[in-house]
Design a protein around this nucleic acid. Structure first.
Lengths: 222, 222
DNA sequence: GACAATGAAAAGAAATTGTTAAGATTGTAA
DNA sequence: TTACAATCTTAACAATTTCTTTTCATTGTC
């Protein structure tokens, strides 16, 4: 994402990350150009008005370098855009600010589909034993009965499941689930693990999925 | 629908109309190309073998013009189709003649769903409990009595309903419903949710449809 | 068996949400 | 243009839920 408007950067990258994308940001044209050459991105979101090197130039020069990554160009409100020029320079799609994020996501999907890079945004869920977890709906079912999890419990479960098999120390879990700037006692993790077990282990006293590794931390297995 | 086989045109357009779609027909490639640029269609059904300009060319040129309308390509019996080529040119799906009309309808539905334009053509409405919502007419009825919703309330309801089941954080709702450049307080969402509940939940204190997921956001269920 | 690590329970702290009402903003008609 | 009505946003407070800490019992390891 080559963009200099901080608000848009934050909103957009947050959303894209939550949709499962990895996002790299460049805040001016030259930086964007460099990064786009060094890395193999799937899509480039390119603002037209940029410091140092404008969107048209970035686009044209990238194509000159043989970079065929799909480019979605953003134009400011009211900015009259010369589509023909844009097309000649090699952009793949346009979007005029302000736009709905859904619109942008749809365009990205379309670009990815066209370039054959694959799809995203599916319903993510996992099953183990008779536990069913749907991360988008924030819903879990045990023996087909819906169970309520708190936000923390959910995030913790999600992290453990997505990094199954590996042992995670309490400090790692605090960083990953609670965030780097939250600094609760490590025992807090224990409490949440206990609650999770209470809710989804058939026999919480002898857990099958969320296991304790004495002296090291916890791990999820299935 | 860009197609030159009269029999198919009649059968198909009759059926599509009866399913609630509006259908425009072009009988050769050039005409189809022109019409697709002039109008905002929701789906294009495009035959491969056409007079004046073949399906591949129409497809590629439309994409070049920035037309992202989903394209469903029809190929004749036995016509070997180069799917890779088709994909590069921007088609979204294929169907080989002869096909069941039901199959074609299903593919169209799928394309519409993917492109997020909702199912248009049909007079789209939903019912849950004794609430009736017509999105095209922007009308809702509760126990058969018409209820007024403000613009925001309506957009919010529509988004929740169209993405039912999934939990949406307040920030996502702000982005989706208010737009990314609008930056109100996240609590604004709560207020609107409360109003919606007031208007369409039988017992607003214990909502059945618009549910709070503590710590995460809101979701619609029915 | 000693010592540290973990499990379990409960109370206090903190965060989130529901609700209301007072401005601020927008749209509309005179 | 002005005045009015409708709508939206913000702020405040209470109610609720969740999180953190603490304590003590239990388990595991050397």
């Amino acid at each position: 994402m080559i963009e200099d408007e901080e608000g848009l950067i934050t909103t957009l990258s947050d959303r894209l990350v939550s949709e499962g994308f990895d996002v790299a940001v460049a805040r001016d044209g030259s930086e964007g150009f460099e990064k786009a050459i060094e890395n193999r991105f799937d899509v480039i979101i390119l603002d037209l008005m940029l410091p140092k090197k404008n969107g048209f130039d970035v686009c044209r020069d990238l194509r000159k370098e043989g970079i065929n990554t799909p480019i979605l160009m953003l134009t400011a409100r009211g900015e009259t855009i010369d589509k023909v020029l844009g097309l000649k320079l090699g952009a793949d799609d346009y979007l005029t600010k302000p736009f709905e994020i859904a619109e942008l996501l749809a365009r990205i999907e379309s670009l990815l589909r066209r370039s054959g890079s694959g799809t995203i945004g599916k319903n993510r869920f996992v099953e183990f034993g008779n536990v069913y977890v749907d991360f988008d709906r924030a819903e879990i079912k045990v023996e087909n009965k819906a169970i309520d999890l708190s936000a923390m419990e959910f995030k913790l479960l999600q992290f453990l499941v997505e990094n199954r098999g590996k042992v995670h120390s309490r400090n790692v879990l605090l960083d990953e689930v609670w965030g780097y700037d939250a600094m609760p006692n490590t025992r807090t993790v224990d409490v949440h693990v206990a609650w999770l077990r209470q809710k989804l282990e058939g026999n919480p006293k002898h857990p099958k999925y969320i296991l304790t590794v004495h002296g090291l931390g916890y791990k999820f297995v299935d």
